[in-house]
Design a protein around this nucleic acid. Structure first.
Lengths: 151, 151
DNA sequence: GATAAATAGTACCAAAATAGTCCACATTCA
DNA sequence: TGAATGTGGACTATTTTGGTACTATTTATC
């Protein structure tokens, strides 16, 4: 449940890679090679991240990308928004016409709260935390929670 | 960012409708007519909700559906999971092969925490809350938060 | 028992979103 | 000047999603 595109997943990986040595400028080519992804795909992701101010680019030979801010100041929410776009959980935002039912519309209103809750959860995870190696906080017996990693 | 299918949206509306008079059994036809949705679509949603134990069905003439539990005991997370399926935020769950990079994999591990945070946010909203009319908790000046309702 | 009204299950199609690629152009370093 | 690199946009193929149709099964009612 609750999907995020594959490109967004890549996006977090790319950002994490850049966060390892924030001062070091990396070309799209380097990143693609290092991460084992296709150059055009990486390029596309970098453009999106750049557009949303998460990266700084340097054109020309010896060019590349660096983080626009310290990893602590970049949230997962920003990364997702940059690539996924500002699409709400529900798509009923503008076209209210379809649901002229009192019941339905009150539901729609309450979705706002859900959206906010999820957004806050995402804003509270920084790129820095994402880049940290996984701390084995809890080892659960395999199979105990079948979909532990799923939403 | 962060999408939920249209069917899931309908699902919440259907559940909310049933929650209004929990004792009252409703046929798929009634629900479709009342909510202004196509019968086959509503039927599909009801089947999914039924399969996940959120509804109880009564077959045959005068049959229909009722909630399987009080609205307070059903979470939005359950509704979403029933219709959207247990798809994780990222799809890297099984096929670890594609990403053989240390950098990337540590990111993947950290996604678990994000998933959990979001899931908990969703589990903390019950169907009962969803069914409540929107309480105008705070009126914010329009435009102050451009994408207030989006994620 | 017969009949009508429902759900149950499954398969299918069309449309939309997504992933991924390619190319022509602009910029900068050596 | 030339090679390397980002920029922007268009394009295609694949996947996912939404929506529909059909048949079987169950049950209330007459």
């Amino acid at each position: 449940m609750l999907r995020v595109g594959k490109l967004t997943d890549y996006g977090t990986v790319v950002m994490t890679y850049l966060a390892r040595e924030p001062e070091q400028m990396r070309s799209a080519n380097d990143i693609a090679a290092e991460l084992g992804l296709a150059l055009p795909t990486v390029s596309k992701i970098l453009k999106a991240l750049l557009h949303h101010g998460l990266l700084v680019s340097h054109r020309g030979a010896k060019g590349g990308y660096t983080l626009a801010a310290p990893a602590e100041a970049i949230s997962v929410a920003q990364i997702i928004a940059a690539i996924e776009g500002p699409i709400a959980l529900t798509e009923c935002s503008d076209t209210e016409g379809s649901c002229n039912q009192e019941t339905g519309c009150s539901v729609r209103g309450n979705w706002q709260r859900i959206n906010r809750a999820v957004r806050e959860a995402l804003e509270n995870v920084s790129l820095a935390e994402l880049a940290r190696p996984v701390q084995p906080i809890r080892f659960m017996t395999p199979g105990a929670l079948p979909s532990a990693g799923s939403l």
